[in-house]
Design a protein around this nucleic acid. Structure first.
Lengths: 264, 264
DNA sequence: CAGTGGTCTAGACCACACT
DNA sequence: GTGTGGTCTAGACCACTGC
């Protein structure tokens, strides 16, 4: 019931800034501390993807702050896409399942067809095996060289035409039981599988894009001629706490599609 | 002084939702209406890029709402990068000048050099001329075929090495006095020039990325061999009101650089 | 109907910047 | 000190959802 309501600071009113007994090394607004506590509950699995979290009023009571403060904390978590508010229903933990529109992190769209996509992507897994991380892979995943990783290679096709070749590396420790069969049998986004089977939720990602020439093996898998230009997309995806949990190298055919990005 | 404080709705308390005399076709929260009024002042040039806008308290008085409501309006405008808050100093109109870190909309970064960039880009303008919009350019700029447009072609280089070839189209009507000399003499971001000389502020942009092969003329301008892969970046930039004001087609060399994108 | 998020207000005090 | 944005509270009422 009681939830260690913040170290000690109980301010009946007034701004954040823990009312300072010791010389605190860092001050942070109350709502930031609340945000941290909510985050902790998300990480610990107290509330799982898709779940409703307690109402703002309940959380306010639990953390011993006003509803407005909880609200501001939830606001930020919602703009970070960690929570989703639904008026009249509650606040939910965001999930890659039920992501009504396609894949959340896939920015490849058809050039003309203003519609979302020409049907869902067809997946074909080329290989899936456990191996040891190279220095480069280890560095990007925050592992050590030689640590076990799971490597997956697959092709995505739209309307029968191959469009994407992806190589994926996952930390072996976190994805213990993942096999080719699990992946092949699954429908729906891979990140949804990670949530339901391994309790790992991808929260944000950073991508680096380049233009490259198709190598012979790549070209044959994508059904194109060698040397044709492909969009190379290298992604590192992070869970809570900015922990890297996936490295993904994609090669996209962009003759009839494009990678869309919004700047502001 | 008085600023037509919203159609009529004067609610001494209680939520937005204009207190409904007529069957209003659309309800919107008070803070959204305030946001619209602030936006109007930004568009009209009442507050120019770099200016301080009135304090939250002053605006609250002017619009006859509470400070908290103005605050929420400003909050959204700040997250949209239209305004910038500076504690103790005031709220400022965002500007592409004084954008402390490089160009705001340029996502091309060096692969290794963890530093921002290897010095500022060197600009070389290849051509700058007025012409009539093709159907395609007109469509993307919201003009009619044959309307006057200004076309600029330039090369950006880093440390002496050409890296970007850009073709830019601007609506002729809005950029009346713009000449090659103006562009060539100017230092600093082009969008800063647009603000100071034409009162046009680019607010957001949408980019479409593809991988393409370098055509012979492109290759020679970029100092590479024909056929090498280049990252094609087609950008439409918008002012206030989602009015398109620039079409830009860039070709980026990505052997040692990459286009960085953050997903969430 | 009750419960949830959404909006609005009013007032208090803090942190920061400038004078 | 004065003025600015930043945080926090308490209470009111609205809008949506589902029983």
């Amino acid at each position: 019931m009681s939830d260690t309501p913040l170290p000690e600071s109980r301010n009946p009113n007034g701004p954040a800034h823990t009312s300072g007994s010791e010389s605190a090394p860092a001050f942070s607004p109350l709502y930031q501390q609340i945000k941290g506590l909510i985050l902790r509950s998300l990480q610990s699995g107290e509330w799982k993807p898709g779940d409703v979290i307690p109402s703002e009023f309940d959380l306010a009571a639990r953390f011993r702050v006003s509803q407005g403060t909880v609200r501001k904390a939830i606001d930020e978590l919602a703009t970070d896409n960690l929570l989703v508010r639904r008026q009249g229903k509650g606040t939910f933990v965001a999930t890659h399942a039920e992501q009504h529109i396609q894949y959340r992190f896939l920015r490849l769209l058809p050039d003309s067809g203003n519609l979302d996509a020409q049907g869902p992507a067809e997946r074909r897994i080329i290989e899936c095996r456990r191996q040891r991380a190279t220095a480069d892979v280890a560095r990007q995943l925050g592992l050590r060289s030689g640590d076990p990783v799971l490597q997956v290679r697959r092709v995505l096709a739209f309307a029968g035409t191959p469009a994407i070749l992806e190589d994926i590396w996952l930390p072996g420790a976190a994805f213990k039981g993942l096999t080719l069969e699990t992946l092949a049998d699954d429908k729906g986004p891979m990140y949804a599988l990670f949530e339901s089977q391994f309790g790992i939720r991808m929260v944000r990602a950073v991508e680096k894009l380049k233009a490259v020439s198709a190598a012979p093996d790549v070209a044959s898998l994508l059904g194109i001629q060698g040397g044709l230009p492909l969009l190379s997309v290298e992604r590192v995806a992070y869970t809570y706490n900015d922990t890297p949990m996936e490295l993904r190298r994609g090669l996209y055919r962009t003759e009839n599609r494009h990678y869309r990005n919004e700047l502001s």
